[in-house]
Amino acid sequence: MTDQPEVVVVRWPGRSPSDEGGLAELLAAYHLRTEAEKGEAVAGVDGLPDRYRAEILDPRTAFGGDVVLVALSGDTAMGCLVVTAPVGGRAELKRLWTDPACRGRGIASGLVGAALAHAAENGVETVGLSVWTWRTGVIALYERLGFTVTESWDERDQLVCMERAL
């Protein structure tokens, strides 16, 4: 038996501005790790490409038309996921990240489940995502949650595109 606090997934930005710090930290960790995995490691947020730095510095603007889900334990942000605004019955999942110290607790699957429920509530028929080939653990998670590999819609090398019908 464990005494781990309950993790709650909230739709952000419906929370107070104080929650932006936790989201910004999660996004920074995600982007810094991704750049390192691509062989383009940078020392800090200032070294990230402008588009990624903008997400970290001003997520409300960067994801203005999207829904950001944040997994919280108390006031601590433990994970995040962006669900893009639907276009033509389709939405995309982006920026799935769980704080490495919090992994193994079902946070990522909880975020994806909440994202799928949100998409279905908003008339989305298909949810897509792209993931780097070396992220085999998250690819396996997506497959367990019903996503299948599909033809790529992204020109970048080493990117796997996946979809799931709702």
Results as ranks from 00 to 15, higher is better:
residue 1 M to T: 13
residue 1 M to W: 00
residue 4 Q to E: 12
residue 4 Q to S: 03
residue 5 P to A: 08
residue 6 E to V: 11
residue 9 V to A: 11
residue 9 V to D: 02
residue 12 W to L: 13
residue 14 G to R: 07
residue 15 R to H: 13
residue 15 R to A: 08
residue 18 S to P: 04
residue 19 D to F: 01
residue 20 E to A: 09
residue 22 G to F: 11
residue 24 A to G: 00
residue 24 A to N: 07
residue 27 L to R: 05
residue 28 A to S: 13
residue 29 A to L: 11
residue 29 A to R: 09
residue 30 Y to N: 08
residue 30 Y to E: 05
residue 31 H to R: 01
residue 32 L to N: 09
residue 32 L to H: 07
residue 34 T to M: 03
residue 35 E to F: 02
residue 36 A to D: 05
residue 38 K to P: 01
residue 39 G to R: 04
residue 39 G to M: 03
residue 39 G to I: 01
residue 40 E to N: 05
residue 41 A to P: 05
residue 43 A to H: 00
residue 48 L to Q: 05
residue 49 P to T: 02
residue 49 P to R: 02
residue 50 D to P: 03
residue 53 R to Q: 14
residue 54 A to S: 07
residue 56 I to D: 06
residue 57 L to N: 04
residue 57 L to D: 00
residue 58 D to V: 07
residue 58 D to I: 12
residue 59 P to E: 07
residue 60 R to W: 00
residue 60 R to D: 00
residue 63 F to I: 10
residue 64 G to K: 06
residue 65 G to E: 02
residue 66 D to I: 04
residue 67 V to L: 04
residue 67 V to K: 06
residue 68 V to G: 07
residue 69 L to T: 01
residue 69 L to G: 08
residue 70 V to F: 10
residue 70 V to D: 14
residue 70 V to P: 00
residue 71 A to Q: 08
residue 77 A to V: 03
residue 77 A to K: 08
residue 77 A to I: 08
residue 78 M to Y: 09
residue 78 M to P: 10
residue 79 G to T: 13
residue 79 G to Y: 11
residue 80 C to A: 12
residue 81 L to R: 13
residue 83 V to A: 11
residue 84 T to N: 06
residue 86 P to K: 12
residue 87 V to R: 05
residue 88 G to D: 11
residue 90 R to A: 01
residue 90 R to E: 15
residue 91 A to C: 12
residue 91 A to F: 10
residue 91 A to P: 15
residue 92 E to D: 09
residue 95 R to A: 12
residue 97 W to F: 12
residue 97 W to Y: 09
residue 102 C to V: 02
residue 102 C to R: 13
residue 103 R to G: 06
residue 104 G to T: 10
residue 106 G to F: 04
residue 109 S to W: 13
residue 109 S to H: 07
residue 113 G to F: 01
residue 114 A to K: 10
residue 114 A to R: 06
residue 114 A to W: 06
residue 116 L to P: 11
residue 117 A to L: 04
residue 118 H to R: 08
residue 120 A to P: 03
residue 120 A to M: 10
residue 122 N to K: 04
residue 123 G to F: 03
residue 125 E to A: 05
residue 125 E to N: 03
residue 126 T to H: 02
residue 128 G to M: 05
residue 130 S to E: 04
residue 133 T to D: 12
residue 134 W to N: 10
residue 134 W to M: 09
residue 135 R to I: 00
residue 135 R to M: 15
residue 136 T to K: 10
residue 138 V to A: 10
residue 139 I to S: 10
residue 142 Y to Q: 11
residue 147 F to Q: 12
residue 149 V to N: 13
residue 150 T to K: 06
residue 150 T to D: 08
residue 151 E to N: 12
residue 153 W to E: 06
residue 153 W to K: 14
residue 155 E to K: 12
residue 155 E to S: 14
residue 157 D to I: 15
residue 157 D to W: 07
residue 159 L to Y: 07
residue 160 V to F: 14
residue 161 C to S: 09
residue 164 R to S: 08
